[in-house]
Write a protein that binds this DNA or RNA. Structure first.
Length: 119
DNA sequence: AAACTGACTAATA
DNA sequence: CTATTAGCCAGTT
């Protein structure tokens, strides 16, 4: 078990790296999967400080409201992020520009709970 | 070292 | 729906 021995940042990157295409995950979700429950802020912080050389799908990381978080860039990077997600198959609401977490939020392991209309 | 800031979340009103 | 409060922790000033 070495992965628990790594730095919290490395664990966060690792969790984000396993997010499948066409799916998104929230900061709190990633924090919990990384073993850092309640450290949602740190996830975003780690992401902001994450080197681009890691090739991590940072675009699949969004806030709990299904909306892309802004970085103070005025929405430039946010637009780019949204574009990347749309390319992967993630749909955005045309009303509020939000993602339907019910359908696109990564479960962390397998698909959503059975019984719903989504087969 | 203290104060600020920030890619967040959840609860409450 | 918005506003407010509280919790979390690392990096900057």
């Amino acid at each position: 078990m070495k992965q628990s021995d790594e730095d919290p940042y490395q664990r966060i990157y690792r969790v984000i790296a396993r997010i499948p295409e066409g799916k998104v995950a929230t900061y709190g979700q990633i924090a919990a999967l990384a073993g850092l429950p309640g450290h949602a802020r740190q996830v975003g912080y780690a992401l902001a400080a994450a080197p681009d050389a890691l090739d991590i799908p940072w675009q699949r990381v969004i806030n709990a409201q299904g909306e892309v978080s802004s970085r103070g860039d005025g929405g430039l990077a946010s637009g780019f992020q949204r574009h990347l997600l749309e390319e992967e198959g993630v749909e955005f609401s045309l009303r509020s520009g939000r993602v339907d977490l019910k359908r696109f939020q990564w479960d962390g392991v397998v698909q959503r709970r059975p019984g719903t209309k989504r087969a």
